[in-house]
Amino acid sequence: MYENIVHLIECISLVHQEGAIDCVSCDAQFHCWAEQAASGADLRAILPDVVAHLEVCPECREEFEAILCILRAQQSGLLDEPQESS
């Protein structure tokens, strides 16, 4: 019954501090941060503004996770050989 209200309140709750990073800045640096994350860096510790942005911006989060997914597959050698039929 209150699904819309709960979504609205959750959305408002996610607002982060002024000065946090925006979408354009995120996009311009995603490749660097994804490499750091793929090598095991704790982004929450070293880039808290980025993590704060990713928590409230589903678009940026989706793109960052996609880059990370491909990098990890690459690191694991999953992209070296033809994909098996599933």
Partner: peptide, 11 residues
Amino acid sequence: GDSQFTTWAIR
């Protein structure tokens, strides 16, 4: 040049 070229291309 702040990452691997291929990572930039993946982005």
